[in-house]
């Protein structure tokens, strides 16, 4: 075992790739395709979904019913990805996503998680004292009359938040709307503003 741990990571990766191909589990082209998809995923993808949901009621309905289908409908590859659930913020309800067990994150539509998402501090505070955490760390104050719902992503689904469309954006195009949607808005730590 110590030999394995001391092996240079590049050599180890080559050996594993070779075995995967030899055993017919994953070909080099399948691995390259997956790396390219992973690298392309970014919060911009989720922002496009949000902007479309804000302007197209039919798309909004599809997104809330089946996030993965809604992602595929605008060209985001979801093959082999976990199911995607979409949590709708309303004037009465604010959603916040955390994975207290590890780091489950909707990577297909938001890309790599921000560094703090996997921190023990975020994972503990998001369930234990979410309102104080949001106010202290993000200056996001959830009004007392709005219900806060913390969604602990523990198993086979991945979750993203559909934030409220901010006031003052009437008549904006999808592209202009997508540009104001940030990563944190789709986790629930921030709220889109103009």
């Amino acid at each position: 075992m110590s030999d394995l741990l001391e092996t240079q990571s590049e050599r180890l990766l080559e050996a594993v790739r070779g075995l995967l191909a030899q055993k017919g589990i994953a070909s080099p082209s399948e691995i390259s395709e997956r790396i390219a998809i992973t690298d392309r995923a970014s919060p911009g993808q989720g922002a496009r979904m949000v902007a479309k949901a804000w302007t197209d009621p039919a798309y909004r309905a599809l997104m809330l019913a089946d996030g993965a289908k809604a992602a595929e409908a605008i060209g985001i590859p979801m093959r082999g990805m976990p199911p995607l659930g979409v949590l709708e913020n309303t004037p009465e309800l604010h959603n916040l996503v955390v994975c207290t067990l590890c780091s489950c994150y909707p990577r297909a539509v938001l890309g790599y998680p921000p560094f703090w998402y996997k921190s023990a501090a975020y994972r503990a505070r998001a369930v234990r004292d979410p309102r104080t955490m949001l106010a202290e760390e993000w200056q996001t104050v959830i009004p007392a009359e709005v219900k806060l719902r913390v969604v602990d992503s523990t198993a086979d689904y991945r979750w993203m938040v559909l934030p409220l469309r901010p006031a003052g954006t009437d008549g904006w195009s999808e592209d202009r709307l997508a540009a104001i949607v940030r990563e944190g808005d789709m986790i629930g730590v921030t709220i889109p503003t103009v």
Partner: peptide, 14 residues
């Protein structure tokens, strides 16, 4: 968690 904000919720996959 006794956050002292009745009405708040936790939604979890089990």
């Amino acid at each position: 968690w006794r956050e002292d904000h009745p009405g708040d919720e936790l939604l979890v996959e089990l």
